[in-house]
Structures are given as C-alpha cells and as structure tokens.
Design a protein around this nucleic acid. Structure first.
Length: 537
DNA sequence: TGCCAAATAT
DNA sequence: GATATTTGGC
C-alpha cells in the first residue's frame, strides 16, 4: 500500500483531538483543567459528578480515549468508583492528597498515572502517551473500542514509514514488538495491561527519549552537557506532541538500525530498559517492562535501583553510518585541531550520546586516519594472506567535502585500510552531496566516508599516511606538494624526501603508506655492514 | 577534559 | 580471533 502525505496528515496533529473524559469534584478545578486541555486541542468532556461521568463512559465508551479523574478520600465521590468501573479506559488520577496510600490505591485500581494537583500544562500535555501505551499494550479483548482505530492507524503509519525507508538520523524506537507484546499481555491476563505506564508525564515535550547515556555521565559526577536542542538534524526521538510525525517514529520496524542499546541483564530478574532499542537481544527487556517504549524518564533519571544498575554499565553506542556521518561532519567542521570530544558532541547534537562515546569514537577515527596498525602486520610480507590483505589497503582519499565548495581541490588525504574488499554496492556515507565516484571512476569509499583508489593505482603513491600533523607534533601540511590534477602524477621529490626523513627519524610512528619496512635480510645485511653481527633477541 | 590503553563485549 | 566499544587511569 502506498501512503501519501495526506494519509498521514490526520496523524501529524496527534494527539490533538484526543477525547478526554475529565472528572473533578471541584467545579473551579474542572473548568481550569478543561481549559488547559482544550488549549492543547484535546477534546474534553468534563464532569463534576462521578456517576454522570461513569454513565457517560459506559454508555459511549468509544467517545473517550482517556480519562483524567480526581480522586478524593474525603468525598463520597472519590473517583475510585469510576476507576473501578472504567478499567479499560486509561485513567490518569489526580488529587490534592499526595499521600502514598492514595497514590497506591489509584494505581492498584488501574490508574495509569497519579498526578498531584494543581495540574499544570506540563503534566497534562503528555497524557496522550498513555493512550498510545494502552493501544499497543492492551490485549485485543480489553482494548477499548475507541483505541482500536488509534492502534491501527499508528501501526499503519509506522509500517508506512518503514516501507518508505524514512529512517535517517533518528534514534529508533522499536514498536515492532509492541504489538506482539500486547499478545503476551493478553495471554497473561486481561488485567495485566492495567499496570501503569511508568511515569509518563515526567517526559516533557521536546525532551529526549533516550537518555541513559547522560545518566551514566551524571552518576559519575560528570558535567556532561545535555543536548536539549532539537533541530532538524537531531538524531533523537522527539516525543513532543507537535512532532509526533513521520520524522520521529522512524525505523520502528528496523531492528538492524539500532543506534544505542543497553544490554544489561540482572540476576535478580530486574531488567532495565528505559532506553530505546531495536536490537533483538534487548527485546526481552521490553517484555519485562510491559513493552513501554514511549515513556522513559526525564533525562534518564533512574526509577529504581534496578535502573541504576542498568545504567551503570554497558550502554553501547552503535556507530551507524548516519551517526558516523554526523561525527565526521562535526570533526571536519571543527578542523583537526579543534576536534575534541566535547565540541564534537555539541555539533553532533545527538541525544543520548556522551562525551565518552564521542571520545572513544574519535580515538578510533584518529587511529584509522593515521593508519595505525601493528608493525608486525606491515612487516609480514611473507605472509600471503597478509599480503593480500594489505593489497586491499586504501591509499588515499579526497579531502573532507564541504558543501560550499564548488570544485574539488586535489589535496590528497591519507587513507586507511579498507575493511573488506570493495564491491560496486559498497555503502558510502560521506557528507551529503559528496561527489564520491563521479570525478574518478573506479574510486571506492571506505567505511569512514573517504573515497579510495583501488589497489593497482594505489601502489604507486608512496605518500605519508598522514599528510597533516606529523612534524614535531605540529600540523604540517604536505598536501600542497601533492599532485594537483591527476593521480597519475608523482609527488614532488622533496615531499618524498621529507616523508622518508620523518619516518626514519621517528621509527616508533607507523610507517607512511607506500613506505615498506626493510626486510629482515636487508636489516641484517646493513647491521653486518656496520659491524654488528649478533642481534640480541 | 582529553587522550590513551586495557578491559570487555560482540 | 578480530573488531568495536567501554572503562579507567593519567
């Protein structure tokens, strides 16, 4: 089925139009709350009388998606009756009474949330999440009729996005399993769905869905900056009402697109999975937590000791092409000297990503860029396997692409090893618009976004592996000694001399590409020539 | 806070 | 065993 923008139009405004049953014994309070809800474009039916509210719901349950009910232990109409008799309707309870027993009673009776009065806009605006939660987690038999269309529409929308391949630059939420989870719930008992969604309203609009990484930093006393900004490039899921659209619920059926996942399991059976995850390995966590994928806590604040433990370790960032692309863009934007983790992190604007994550990736990135490989690997020319491996080693790349460039300078950048044999279908994730293979047919791209030459051409370029930054720790740019127009040219002689000289003066550094270490025989011969015949092992 | 290397996970 | 990523020390 082909979906059009019009098909999704109805949902772009979600949760506007959500039908809310509001019950509050206080006439002033009910009016105030109603006004706030209506300001959010919710469709509110308000009641001050519990019996009236209940009968309204029982008569036309399809008229309501969610209820906001005030409970009171002092009044005869405490709201509990409604709660008990409208179990299928996700019900948010509110009260001036914050005592634990009242809250527990509400939850025990099936309330999805307990909100202290007064009800601010902040508290109210996210109640829609309970509707989604209910729609996806209630067994079919207990799914309120009013929510079935919600569920079906959401499912269709999510499916549509997957088919359209709209899954770039967004941290994913797996709702793929949610439907299945609802089946599980159904198997357990009809009442299992009455367990409340965890602390939904603590997730404020615009706040990120994935925060365990930050929490990790926070617990370490780090001042890790939390990226609260959300621009068009943000890679986190924005759960705000305004943005619950195709951009934000992407990849929902793309387990392989996991960006960040937590992989803890606990001996005590407590599984923490507040983070979004698409990794099949983590699905069990979703099951354990009732499959609530839409309601993590604010800023990853742990809800309990289990979650603290869950956050302490093993949050793993999967550096997908998109994420890496952002990383590379940030690095290039900052420049070699300024590319430090904190700044990269700022530029990337990826929620959930920590400075540690970036630092780690930067470390790898730099190592790759400097072509750091064990010397033995280089020297092992007698190993045919190694030889063939080295033969695939990319030699150079184009300089970082800048979109404002209209031509491509012939600066030759260092390149690092290709992980696999290149094929025509190799995935390339350079910056958008990078003219990868256009100017030079046959040029490939490696996993780090740099196009590379195939081995035959490569063998005739004895350039240093890092043309910038090898001289006495200072940035020295050799690139202008490089051929300017064609790969057929050889580098300037003085450049080669410079590279060789440097390699000899700093034997601890990895050899520049193109420079081969001397063979053991030649070394022995040279030593012998210098009167050294015994080599201590 | 950044960098590096060891440890750990996949 | 290779590679990717986290963790911990400096």
């Amino acid at each position: 089925m082909v979906w059009t923008a019009n098909d999704l139009q109805g949902w772009k405004d979600f949760p506007k139009g959500l039908k809310v049953l509001l019950l509050d014994g206080d006439i002033n309070s009910v009016a105030e709350t109603k006004a706030k809800l209506e300001a959010m474009d919710y469709n509110v039916s308000s009641f001050s009388n519990e019996s009236a509210a209940l009968s309204a719901f029982l008569n036309r349950p399809e008229d309501f998606h969610i209820a906001v009910v005030e409970v009171s232990t002092s009044s005869s109409q405490g709201g509990f009756k409604f709660l008990e008799n409208a179990k299928d309707l996700p019900t948010v309870t509110t009260s001036n009474n914050q005592c634990l027993s009242t809250m527990m009673k509400c939850i025990a009776l099936g309330a999805v949330e307990f909100l202290n009065k007064p009800l601010s806009e902040d508290k109210l605006k996210n109640i829609w999440q309970h509707v989604v939660h209910k729609a996806f987690n209630a067994g079919e038999s207990v799914l309120p009729g009013s929510l079935k269309p919600v569920k079906e529409s959401l499912e269709s929308m999510l499916q549509c996005q997957t088919e359209n391949g709209q899954h770039e630059n967004k941290i994913s939420v797996e709702l793929d399993n949610v439907s299945r989870l609802s089946d599980n719930d159904h198997n357990h008992s009809a009442g299992s769905d009455k367990y409340p969604a965890p602390s939904t309203p603590q997730l404020k609009q615009g706040e990120r869905l994935l925060n365990d990484g930050d929490y990790q930093e926070h617990t370490n006393g780090s001042t890790e900056k939390e990226s609260g900004e959300h621009d068009g490039e943000s890679m986190s899921v924005d759960t705000s009402c305004e943005n619950l659209n195709t951009e934000n619920i992407t990849q929902l059926r793309k387990p392989e697109k996991t960006l960040i996942k937590r992989e803890d399991g606990f001996a005590d059976g407590c599984k923490g999975e507040s983070a979004v995850s698409l990794n099949p390995r983590n699905r069990k966590f979703l099951s354990k937590t009732g499959g609530n994928t839409t309601t993590p806590n604010k800023a990853g604040v742990p809800r309990d000791s289990c979650e603290i433990k869950a956050n302490r370790k093993k949050m793993k960032v999967d550096w997908t092409p998109e994420l890496h692309k952002k990383f590379v863009q940030a690095v290039e934007q900052l420049g070699v000297d300024q590319a430090i983790p904190s700044r990269i992190l700022e530029l990337m604007k990826v929620d959930g990503l920590t400075r540690h994550n970036v630092a780690s990736h930067l470390q790898k990135y730099r190592m790759q860029k400097r072509q750091i490989v064990p010397r033995g690997e280089w020297a092992n020319h007698r190993d045919p396997i190694q030889r063939s491996y080295d033969a695939q080693r990319p030699i150079m790349s184009y300089p970082p692409f800048h979109s404002n460039q209209t031509h491509y300078p012939a600066h030759v950048y260092p390149m690092w090893r290709q992980p696999v044999i290149q094929t025509a279908g190799v995935q390339v994730w350079g910056p958008p618009g990078y003219p990868l293979c256009q100017p030079f047919p046959g040029v490939h791209a490696d996993a780090w976004g740099c196009p590379v030459l195939p081995p035959p051409q490569a063998s005739c370029f004895p350039y240093t592996q890092d043309m910038v930054g090898l001289q006495n720790g200072k940035a020295v740019d050799y690139r202008f000694g490089m051929p300017q127009n064609s790969f057929e040219h050889h580098p300037a002689e003085e450049v080669v001399d410079k590279i060789v000289k440097e390699a000899m003066s700093k034997p601890w550094l990895p050899l520049p590409l193109g420079l081969k270490p001397p063979s053991a025989d030649s070394v022995l011969a040279e030593l012998s020539k210098q009167g050294i015949s015994n080599i201590p092992l």
